[in-house]
Design a protein around this nucleic acid. Sequence first.
DNA 1: GCTGCATGATGAA
DNA 2: TCATCCTGCAGCA
Length: 278
Amino acid sequence: MPEGHTIHRYARKHWDDLGGQKIATSSPQGRFSSGAARLDGRTLTAIKAHGKHLFYRWEGGETLHIHLGLFGRFRRHTIPANEADLPPPSDGTRLVMTGEDVTIYLSGPTICRLVDPDTEASVRSRLGPDPLDDDSEIQKLKEFQANLARRSIPIGAALLDQKVTAGIGNVYRAEALFLAGIDPQIPAKDLSSESAVQLWSLSTELLRRGERAGRIITVDPTDVGAKRRSDLKKRERLYVYKRQGEPCRRCGTPISMSDMANRHIWWCSSCQPAGSGA
DNA sequence: GCTGCATGATGAA
DNA sequence: TCATCCTGCAGCA
């Protein structure tokens, strides 16, 4: 499920599977038929992730722009010796990309379209700094802080705004604010410099860990009596997300929930007391 | 089988 | 603030 860590992971894995190869493309569902027909047989020259957006660049200069939204997903199959053993794409499969050894099915994306390099650049220019991007850490942090300083919306809403920072979604916003001890309600511009720095470095650390592990794990194993992160059971991997009413793993206070920026948000009212982070 | 919900984002009102 | 688009699956009957 797609926050930035998943997207960067896809970019890397899809490049390993398909990079530099001539790719056969099709759209069983039909909604991307013309785009798939244009790409069919072309060589994939690069894959770039920015926040939750994916950009597949092809010989000939065009870019395939994909955004998974809430429902989009990729399915990957190694092509079996007998091609009849390959599970067929479902009727809803928007795009099939087949390389030498691997085929990828895409379903449910919010965006799947061909764009020119200028459009790719303009999409990216509207996104805030991505903690998983290779750009300079100092530069990204400065941009993040400047973006916060310009907003009076609550920090919990600002973190979901991809113009502020790109890649954080509803799980990471709740978990990062908990770990940083920040009240989700405080205005973004009121965040102290220390809290902003901490929030950025936590976001980076958590997203990196998520990309590596292939799942979101924010809990320090000692907080749940485990030795290693890999030992954590599914229900133990997060501090606050979807845990309303359950005891805080740090202090035992029941976790709170409310709505912010059209999504549920969870927090601990003792670890993140009103006004904390300012 | 049906219902509701979900790790997202936009555009209208 | 709401309605809408995108799809799958858990939880229920």
